[in-house]
Design a binder for these strands. Structure first.
Lengths: 229, 229
DNA sequence: AGGGTGTGTGACAATTTTATTAAACGATTA
DNA sequence: TAATCGTTTAATAAAATTGTCACACACCCT
C-alpha cells in the first residue's frame, strides 16, 4: 500500500498537526514549507500523494500544482489542495490547476484521512512500495534495502535513490542533468561530474555480484539501466 | 542546443557580470538596458531565454514580461526574473506576468546557470521519439540504442546520429555536404571525405548482422539508406 | 587497356569524454 | 569538541571518439 505523503504547508503548527494525524494513520510524511523546498523534496522516491496548502506565501501553491503536472514523473502523483472556508474561487482554480480533490479548513482528521485514502484508491495503483527486481538484483522500498541473490548490499543514501530511479525507469538514457533533477532534486546546484562519482560508487556496491553491468555508460548521452548486453 | 540569452538589466556593472558568467558557461548573450532596447533586440534570431531584471527604471520589467506573452513569436520564450531579496510581492506578480522562474539577488553564478538550464530543459519537452525499424534493424531514441535482432550494437555518437538521420530519411540520396549539415550541424569545418570514414564505421557497426547493405553508395551523388536491393 | 575520378580502408595523433582517486567539506552525533 | 559518515569538488588517469591522411581499389570513359 502506498503511504508516502508530501506535506506542503508554510505554517509550522498546522504542519505538525498534519504530520501527527497522518503518522497516526500509518502514512510516512515528508515536509516542505514552501515552493522551493517542495521542489527539492520531489525526488526519488517520489511521494504517493501531495497535500498542498493553496495559500502558500508567494502564492506559489498554484505554481507548484502547475509545475507538478508539467513534469513527466510527478504528473501522476495525486494532489489534494487545502483551502480556507469560503474561498470558492480558489477551489475552482485549484481543480483547474490539476488538483484531484480539495479539503476546506477547518477539517477533522477523520475527514482528511478518508479523503487521502479515497484519492489513493482512485489513482492508478502505482504503489512504488513494491519490490523491484532485475536479474537477481532486488530493491525493496519497504525495508529500504537492496539484495543480490539474498545478500544484502551496502550503499549510501544517494546511491540507493539513484538505483531506485534507474530501476523504476529502465532501458532509458538519462543525462547527468536529468539525473540531478530526478535524484538530487530541482533547485539544488551540483556539478554534473558529481554524478560520475555516485555512478561509480553504485557500480561498486552492486558489482560484488556482477550486477554493475546493468548500469551502462552511453557516451555523449549519459547513463542507462538495462538488462540487455 | 539552445544557448542564446537576452539580458535585460539597466545597471551596466551587473550586466557585465551576468554577461561574463553566461559566456563562461557557453551561452551567447544579447544585452539590453531598458524596455525599448530589449524590444529592438527581439528579432530573428530570437533568444532562447530572457533574463529580466524586475526593477527596470520606469518599472517596465512587468510591462516587458506582459508584452512578451502577447506576441506570437515571443510567447514561448522562457523568462527568468531577477528580484531583490524580500520582494515576495514581486515574485507573485512576476509569476503572474508569465515568468517561468525567478532568482533572488544576490545569487551565485552557479545557481543562475543551473536555473537557466533547468528552465530550458523544462521548456524543451521530451521529444517522444518512437523507435524506428527497418528489416530487423531497430533504433530506439529513448534508450539511445541500436538493436539488430535483439543484439545491441555498438557504435560511436556520430555513427548513431548518422544512422538516426538515415533512418528518419530513408530512400533518399544525400551528398556529403548535406550529411555534414544535417548530422554534424551547419557551419562546422570538416572535410567532405570525413563522411566516408563515418559511413565506413557505421557499416562496420551494423554489418555484423548484414544490415550494412542498407547503407548504399550512390556514385557521384552521395549516400542513401534504403531497404531495397 | 589506361587514365582519370570517385570511394573504401587502416592507421594515427589530437581531442573529448568518462573513470578513478584523493582530499576538502558539511552535517550529525557521541 | 572531536569523531564519523556521506557528499562534493578537484586533480589525474584512462578510454573512446574524431578528423585526416595516404594509399588501395573500383568504376567509367575513350
Amino acid at each position: 500500500m502506498s503511504r508516502r505523503v508530501l506535506l506542503v504547508e508554510d505554517e509550522a503548527p498546522i504542519r505538525d498537526m498534519l504530520k501527527f494525524v497522518l503518522e497516526q494513520s500509518g502514512f510516512e510524511t515528508i515536509e516542505a514549507e514552501d515552493y522551493d523546498i517542495a521542489q527539492q523534496k520531489l525526488v526519488e522516491p517520489y511521494p504517493d500523494l501531495i497535500l498542498l496548502d493553496w495559500m502558500l506565501p508567494g502564492g506559489s501553491g498554484v505554481q507548484l500544482a502547475k509545475s507538478l503536472k508539467q513534469h513527466e514523473f510527478t504528473r501522476d502523483i495525486p494532489v489534494i489542495m487545502i483551502t480556507a472556508r469560503g474561498e470558492e474561487e480558489d477551489k475552482i482554480r485549484g481543480l483547474d490547476a490539476g488538483a484531484d480533490d480539495y479539503i476546506t479548513k477547518p477539517f477533522s482528521p477523520k475527514e482528511l484521512v478518508a479523503r487521502i485514502k479515497a484519492v489513493m484508491r482512485r489513482v492508478t495503483p502505482t504503489s512504488n512500495e513494491q519490490p523491484i527486481e532485475f536479474n537477481g538484483l532486488k530493491l525493496e522500498p519497504i525495508s529500504h534495502r537492496v539484495m543480490a541473490n539474498d545478500d544484502a548490499l551496502d550503499m549510501g543514501p544517494t546511491e540507493y535513490k539513484l538505483l531506485h530511479f534507474f530501476m523504476t525507469h529502465p532501458e532509458r538514457v538519462y543525462s547527468r542533468e536529468q539525473l540531478l533533477d530526478n535524484v538530487w532534486g530541482t533547485n539544488v546546484y551540483v556539478e554534473d561530474r558529481t554524478v560520475d562519482v555516485h555512478i561509480r560508487r553504485l557500480r561498486k556496491a552492486i558489482g560484488v555480484h556482477g550486477h554493475d553491468a546493468m548500469i551502462q555508460t552511453v557516451r555523449g548521452a549519459g547513463y542507462r539501466f538495462s538488462t540487455k548486453l
